[in-house]
């Protein structure tokens, strides 16, 4: 009996080590994981929404006087924007007419899918989130994920109705990027110190990279569209050997407070 237990424990130990190794890379999810993801989705969506509403309510109560002032300001801004919108509407219709005149085809290189965040990674090292759109909605592995402020991550697992997003500050992922002004290419990844900052790594010491330059996606790899904003360079670290440096990048989006995102993909992008 004692020996049998020892054999079982040894077998489980070896099995665990093998499965840890096998599941340490990006892969297609198994049927069991697919069922688990689908089983959690409806409740996760409702609970996430309820918690966000509760936090908003609590913040609203605590910030009431400031909110009232902001409300007045916004009302006047809305009135001004309504005038501008009317003007823009005129331009829009004029644009359509001119396009027709030039016989131009309405083209867009990007395909965009709107999604809600329904869960976040449960481990401290796990800077990931779950969205409520999956492969049935057109989401594929390695698609980019962004908000109107810029890129926030990329898809690393897809199930029929949900997808897992690895955020930019995750230690396990990286994205091809470049500086917007000087077009200098590099790889951006999370620093991994819990600050939420990113770093543009492997830059030669004389690379034309400077403070406050904007970092955008470079489009290399053909999966994430080019020119999506990521963040700005907030400091530069030189390696001890003096040959390389890395630029610390502050992302434009607060990666801890994402609620709605857009999945972006290139029309006819290269498959991994």
């Amino acid at each position: 009996m004692e020996n049998r237990n020892k054999i079982i424990i040894f077998f489980l130990l070896v099995a665990c080590i093998v499965t840890v190794r096998l599941s340490s890379k990006d892969r297609e999810i198994t049927q069991v994981e697919r069922i688990l993801a689908e089983g959690f989705r409806p409740m996760q969506q409702s609970l996430m929404q309820a918690t966000e509403n509760l936090i908003l309510f609590a913040e609203g109560v605590s910030n009431h006087p400031a909110v009232a002032r902001e409300n007045e300001l916004l009302k006047s801004q809305i009135a001004q924007m309504e005038v501008e919108t009317d003007l823009e509407r005129e331009y829009y219709f004029e644009n359509i007419r001119l396009r027709k005149l030039l016989n131009m085809r309405e083209t867009s290189e990007w395909q965009v899918i709107a999604a809600d965040v329904i869960a976040r990674g449960i481990k401290s090292w796990d800077d990931t989130m779950t969205i409520n759109m999956g492969e049935d909605d057109g989401v594929s592995l390695y698609d980019g994920v962004m908000t109107y402020n810029g890129l926030v991550g990329k898809i690393y697992q897809v199930s029929p109705h949900t997808a897992e997003v690895r955020l930019l500050n995750n230690r396990l992922g990286s994205v091809a990027a470049m500086t917007e002004q000087t077009r200098f290419p590099g790889v951006i990844e999370g620093i991994g110190d819990g600050s939420g900052l990113l770093q543009l790594i492997y830059l030669p010491h004389d690379a034309p990279v400077d403070l406050n330059q904007t970092v955008v996606t470079s489009g290399l790899g053909g999966l994430i569209p080019k020119e999506i904003k990521i963040g700005y360079i907030s400091s530069i670290d030189y390696n001890e050997d003096g040959l390389l440096k890395s630029a610390i990048v502050t992302p434009f989006e607060d990666l801890d407070r994402l609620e709605e995102v857009l999945v972006v993909k290139l029309e006819g992008g290269v498959s991994p």
Binding site: C16, I17, V18, V20, D126
Partner: peptide, 20 residues
């Protein structure tokens, strides 16, 4: 082991680590 294994399947990465 049981709790950790289900947690690993939920996370979908390093399956078996939390179980162990």
């Amino acid at each position: 082991f049981f709790v950790g294994l289900l947690e690993d399947l939920f996370i979908g990465r390093f399956i078996g680590s939390n179980a162990l």
